[in-house]
């Protein structure tokens, strides 16, 4: 990527206005993945001075600013306590510390990368995004939408609902992108399965209706859950794995994940 000029907006409105002026303008998070794009950026919009790098905790939610680095999130105690620590587990497997000190939550969300290990646990926990213009949007509908969100993300809100989680990244080495990532999360009234790196963007399926939330499911029930997930979430192939192998991974880890979260108190 070649960058011709930098722009530091004075406030959110300014940022929004500038970012919508031209397609040669790109809003930067950390910029680490953007760097790999071959395009020429006439104007890089930096949100560094806009006070978006804070994590605020309230009784029922944690609000993570878009400019927080992944490393800030992964080392935050309150975030580590959510969903058996699935957010932290997932983040710790994103490349190395040296990259996670650059990459931001906003960049990771707005990139909507198919290979993302950041989005699936947030989706499993039903996180919400706050945008400068569009206001609050659920991550689920953001993920489902094919439209490019021409907006400035301000923060993500993670509910502090009592929850139990499972996260598994399958990859050749810890530095590789996922062949598939599997997240399972149980709250008081819901069990959600998320498959990411399908290789497309993460998708979720709530399998609550198949399960009795107070008992450990039998093998037959687990079969049904796996079938429901595979029916609902399409898997495909790319250079890292075939569709068939992704299905095998999904069958194995959805089963293991559901079994694990159902066996634990949440």
């Amino acid at each position: 990527m070649k960058i011709a000029s930098l722009y530091r907006p004075k406030d959110v409105e300014d940022a929004l206005k500038v970012s919508r002026e031209s397609t040669d303008t790109v809003v930067f998070g950390g910029g680490a993945w953007l760097k790999l794009s071959p395009r020429l950026v006439k104007r890089a919009v930096l949100l560094d001075d806009m006070d978006l790098a804070t994590i605020e905790t309230s009784d029922d939610a944690i609000r993570v600013g878009a400019m927080c680095t992944l490393r800030m999130v992964e080392t935050h105690d309150a975030i580590a306590a959510i969903g058996s620590g699935i957010i932290v587990q997932a983040l710790r497997q994103v490349m190395g510390v040296g990259l996670r000190n650059i990459a931001t939550v906003g960049g990771s969300v707005m990139g909507k990368y198919g290979f993302s290990d950041v989005l699936p646990p947030l989706l499993a926990l039903d996180a919400k995004l706050m945008f400068a213009d569009a206001g609050e949007v659920s991550l689920a509908s953001f993920m489902a939408s094919k439209k490019r969100m021409n907006d400035i993300m301000l923060y993500v809100t993670i509910p502090r609902t009592k929850s139990v989680g499972f996260f598994k990244k399958v990859s050749t080495t810890p530095l590789d992108f996922s062949l598939l990532n599997i997240t399972v999360c149980k709250t008081r009234d819901r069990v959600r399965v998320v498959l990411g790196s399908r290789p497309g963007g993460a998708m979720h399926q709530d399998v609550t209706s198949r399960l009795d939330l107070n008992t450990i499911p039998d093998e037959k029930t687990l079969d049904d859950v796996v079938r429901e997930v595979l029916d609902a979430i399409p898997l495909g192939q790319n250079v890292r794995a075939s569709k068939l192998y992704r299905e095998q991974l999904a069958k194995t880890y959805v089963r293991r994940g559901v079994k694990e979260v159902m066996s634990r108190e949440g």
């Binding site: 950390g30 680490a32 760097k35 190395g96 650059i102 530095l175």
Partner: peptide
């Protein structure tokens, strides 16, 4: 941003200098 040999410390934190 995938080999680590350019790592420096920025405010004490290891960071890939190739990507900042």
């Amino acid at each position: 941003a995938s080999c680590g040999v350019c790592t420096v410390l920025i405010d004490g934190k290891p960071t890939l200098s190739c990507s900042v």
